[in-house]
């Protein structure tokens, strides 16, 4: 799935409908920036001013964060107004078909990364083993749909290749970082 910006970069100018969809996206972003800016500003105002420590009032910890909150609000409003002027509305507007295949692929990629880093890493299993499992699973699960599109399924050679890459990278990275460069691993 290529984004509008990428198509534009390839020399393919965006259509009016794409521009309007982009503007609608910017309008939603603007609301997000506004919310973040307000949250930062409120958090900064409510931040301890360390009066008990008798600090100089111009050095309160919330000073710069508060100003940054204001900047986010200002730029958020600017982004929102600009997209509104370009015809963006929160409801209605053009709709593009969602590329479900790409979305599924992205979900698989993110899930594998989260399982590896959050659920497995640093939970008692050796680094090389956890890493090998992640690499093998990634190669198999990501190559299977590509092979299916080409009308083929994964054979034992593919599994053996994935296992070799996974085990090889896990063991080599552990050895190089831990033994040669004396870096601690999770």
């Amino acid at each position: 799935m290529t984004t509008t910006a990428e198509r534009h970069a390839d020399g393919d100018p965006p259509s009016p409908a794409e521009l309007q969809a982009q503007a609608a996206g910017d309008l939603r972003d603007a609301l997000g920036w506004l919310a973040l800016g307000v949250a930062v500003l409120v958090g900064s105002i409510r931040m301890d001013r360390l009066e008990a420590q008798h600090i100089n009032p111009y050095t309160v910890p919330g000073l710069l964060p508060g100003l940054l909150g204001l900047v986010m609000i200002l730029l958020g409003v600017l982004l929102g107004l600009r997209s509104w002027n370009r015809g963006a509305r929160l409801v209605g507007g053009p709709h593009f078909a969602i590329d479900w295949r790409s979305m599924r692929r992205l979900a698989v990629v993110i899930s594998l990364i989260l399982i590896y880093t959050v659920a497995l890493l640093g939970r008692g299993l050796p680094f090389w083993l956890v890493s090998a499992l992640y690499v093998i699973a990634s190669i198999v699960l990501l190559q299977a749909p590509q092979r299916a599109l080409a009308g083929r399924s994964l054979g034992w050679r593919d599994f053996a290749f994935a296992a070799a890459v996974g085990l090889g990278s896990g063991v080599v990275i552990q050895y190089v970082f831990q033994n040669l460069f004396l870096v601690r691993l999770p």
Partner: peptide, 13 residues
């Protein structure tokens, strides 16, 4: 699909 999972290991380390 082969290279990127290995790069992720490096990023994690």
């Amino acid at each position: 699909t082969v290279l990127m999972p290995v790069i992720l290991l490096l990023c994690t380390v």
